[in-house]
């Protein structure tokens, strides 16, 4: 793979403040806490984690749909975090988003033609008389046809709506797409159709994806690199194959082992995590995973671990490996 860097996130933080009343201190929820990663051109980069771990917030902050609290987002070596509203708006023609819920993300009062015309009007792409043809072209790419132009979203099934959502994202010919759980609201047989479509247009239009999901089997199938998030931090980054073959962080190990088996005869040693994800408003001290970790020791409760590299592409933040390193 050509290693041209398209997007670079460093030290990204997004804190939400909850007001408790006039004289009480505000509660700070650290939704995204010091997240850094690079995405290279043409690859599919996955963010995986359980609900509330900050993966969606990360995706939205990268597109500046919410303002970051701190940190840098470099898109084509340009710092997005500092851009004005107007320049950012222009740049959005190169970065688009596909949303999770195909039922809520399309305006029910607009026809498909109006929905797909909107981005073209906003960004003044193509000559006005060409735009309709362009819309018909893109509908064909996503497996719909000219006959659907004047219909409303409610006339479509979930899978078709997600196709429209994808068409709306790719019609501006962007370089980068943030796909936030694009298939998790769909049934298995439709899910595979949408995954195929995403793989197909990625090849055709040379897209780079940031793929946010909690479904590990989908991630294993279609992504190149994975970052595992827990409580607003990245605990492990690796190439997809490497991560699934030898997960290093105890949380990743537990997450992978919790995936339901694919055949009744399959026997899997399951690591069942105790308890729930703690509240991000009041995260545990030290390593935030220590209350649920099998290997937790004293140091985990006090000091937050730093990243340990296992290879050029594989990194985990866990004391387990620091200690082993010292022993050696």
């Amino acid at each position: 793979m050509s290693k041209e860097r398209l997007l670079s996130v460093s030290g990204l933080k997004k804190y939400f403040e909850i007001s408790q009343g006039m004289f009480k201190p505000k509660i700070v929820v650290k939704a995204v806490d010091d997240v850094s990663f690079d995405i290279y051109k043409g690859e599919t980069f996955a963010l995986v984690g359980e609900s509330g771990c900050g993966k969606s917030t990360t995706g939205r902050t990268i597109l500046k749909l919410t303002e970051p609290t701190a940190g840098e987002v470099l898109f084509k070596e340009q710092n997005i975090a500092k851009l004005s509203y107007e320049t950012m708006r222009k740049l959005r023609s190169q970065m688009q988003m596909v949303f999770q819920d195909p039922y809520a993300s399309l305006n029910p009062k607009k026809t498909i033609q109006q929905i797909l015309m909107e981005p073209l009007n906003v960004h003044k792409k193509f000559e006005p008389h060409e735009r309709l043809n362009k819309i018909i072209d893109i509908l064909k790419v996503v497996g719909l046809s000219e006959a659907h132009l004047h219909r409303y979203p409610h006339e479509f099934s979930g899978g078709q709506r997600q196709r429209i959502g994808i068409a709306r994202a790719v019609i501006l010919n962007p370089d980068f797409i943030v796909a936030d759980e694009p298939v998790s609201a769909l049934d298995v047989s439709v899910q595979s159709q949408v995954i195929n479509l995403m793989l197909e247009i990625q090849k055709k239009l040379q897209l780079t994806y940031l793929f946010i999901s909690h479904d590990l089997s989908v991630i294993q199938h279609m992504t190149d690199r994975v970052a595992v998030m827990y409580l607003g931090r990245i605990v492990e980054i690796a190439n997809t194959e490497e991560l699934f073959a030898s997960p290093k962080h105890p949380y990743t190990q537990a997450l992978l082992s919790a995936v339901p088996i694919s055949h009744p005869k399959e026997k899997r040693e399951r690591i069942v995590l105790e308890g729930d994800v703690p509240s991000p408003a009041n995260p545990p001290s030290g390593c935030t995973f220590h209350p649920r970790c099998r290997f937790a020791s004293d140091i985990c409760k006090q000091i937050a671990p730093s990243a340990v590299a296992f290879s050029d592409t594989h990194m985990a933040t866990c004391h387990l490996y620091n200690l082993e390193g010292e022993k050696k």
Binding site: I195, N196, L199, H221, M222
Partner: peptide, 23 residues
């Protein structure tokens, strides 16, 4: 058969998934 074949874990990585056409 189609349901079982369309599971991502039953398909080779990055290949097009088997899918049941239509709705």
């Amino acid at each position: 058969k189609g349901l079982l074949k369309s599971l991502p874990s039953q398909n080779e990585r990055k290949s097009a998934l088997y899918s049941i056409a239509g709705q």
